[in-house]
Design a protein around this nucleic acid. Structure first.
Lengths: 247, 247
DNA sequence: AATATTAAATGTCAATATGACACTAAGATA
DNA sequence: TATCTTAGTGTCATATTGACATTTAATATT
């Protein structure tokens, strides 16, 4: 910090959330659409986010946005970083900002978070956001408002990188899952085929999952056993200096 | 971003830089001290930083702070993330802020960056900062102003993590270095002894350094060969999907 | 000139981890 | 009872890791 204060600066801080959800087939992101202030039509998709309140810190703001949208608390949430919002890039964004903000020319930075949820385990909250919120397959998202595409790409990369080092993928699954579901999750996020037997071998060696006494029912094939993440063993691994999942 | 604008919000954005320097023995951080507005004495150390200008984005601000302090450009710089600054934590911080800021109660977030430099390759710039800037061994830093200790700890952790995955350590050395220097650097940052022969074996296998036709002179022992980072080979490795240094 | 001192440079072997590969098992359905 | 579908399992060859001690090349000392 510098000695010169510049009180005429006009700055705003927002948070935006990249909410990942896995439906056992593909990776999805929760996006919202807003009505255009000009013609009332829904315009481009964007990431859910909000300006931060005077009374909250960054993480609290992210948790609030997340909770308002999903009704969920205590979900995996991690900061991606701060992004300068280019106010002059996109005509449509400028129109929207002029209509909606009292100070459309304020210098905005946004702090992005990414969250991991199991999208089959809850309904989107029927709140103010809901009518315009929907899960979109990440592979089909080509453009977003407000430079959010850049944030999304960063989040996707971070998810891939982090998944290879820490077992955060479990946050995208329900408490009970099959090894096939976990295997599929890794293939989808890492982006390449992983040998089934080698994948299971590694999980067993690390003792990072525990086998439950419960199987799939009503499936027209051999039922899969359910497993749960072994929090306790993972904690021990980390204590012993384990720091690389290695997929 | 939300539809409700809150123009009475009073927000400031600053950048703070954790500048790491390696002196071939230990890891150091460039810190500054300011004069207390109350008694004119130098007070606690803090990270170099500044409020961001209206005309620059976050990274430009970090580059500016870095350049003002070191005179260096084109150095390794990466964002750590955004931190909420707790305005009410520390009595000394509050006194300083009240004296120096026109709006001492503004809600401040700071975006932290970390930079890697070879501290033997330049002199601190004799600019406005200089008289109060100095390198401090990271192991001897116990407290900093403005919650900067939290940022420093984050930066240290990130450096350790990243070093194990990407060869960023070369940024802490001069262009020509010996393998012993590199070895020492890894030991200091990773925080444990690494077998010399195994360390060299890995470097040779990856072909990530190239042997130069030049040796140490005037050393009272067998002179060490100089090496340089092999940018080209590293680029190829990354293209082929290499993503883990594995130390 | 001979010797001491210091850090540099180098190879092997056993243990572990990885990658590639194909068949049998268990349930539902026709 | 046959068929369909996905679950579940083992081996072997190769690559990687971790542990370990001696020789070399320069300066400094006597």
């Amino acid at each position: 910090m510098d000695n010169n204060d510049r009180s005429n600066l006009n700055q705003r801080i927002s948070v935006d959330c990249v909410i990942f959800g896995f439906d056992f087939e593909k990776l999805n992101v929760l996006l919202i659409k807003r009505k255009s202030p000009e013609n009332g039509r829904l315009n481009q998709f964007s990431l859910p986010g909000d300006l931060i309140f005077e009374t909250e810190n960054l993480e609290q703001a992210a948790i609030r946005v997340l909770h308002d949208l999903t009704g969920l608390k205590d979900i995996f949430l991690e900061q991606l970083g701060a992004f300068s919002v280019d106010r002059h890039s996109n005509e449509e964004d400028r129109i929207w900002l002029r209509a909606v903000r009292e100070q459309p020319e304020a210098h905005v930075i946004t702090v992005a978070y990414y969250a991991l949820v199991n999208l089959t385990s809850f309904e989107l909250k029927p709140a103010y956001f809901a009518s315009s919120a929907s899960w979109q397959p990440i592979d089909e998202i080509n453009s977003l408002a407000f430079g959010h595409m850049n944030i999304l790409n960063n989040a996707h990369k971070q998810l891939r990188t982090k998944l290879k080092i820490q077992p955060i993928g479990f946050n995208l699954l329900p408490e009970k899952f099959t090894l096939s579901q976990l295997h599929k999750l890794y293939e989808v996020i890492v982006g390449k085929a992983l040998d089934k037997r080698n994948f299971r071998r590694k999980l067993i060696k690390l003792q990072i999952v525990k086998k439950l006494d419960e199987k799939q029912v009503d499936v027209p094939h051999k039922p899969s056993n359910f497993y749960a993440f072994n929090t306790e063993n993972y904690r021990k691994l980390v204590e012993d200096g384990f720091d690389n999942f290695g997929f």
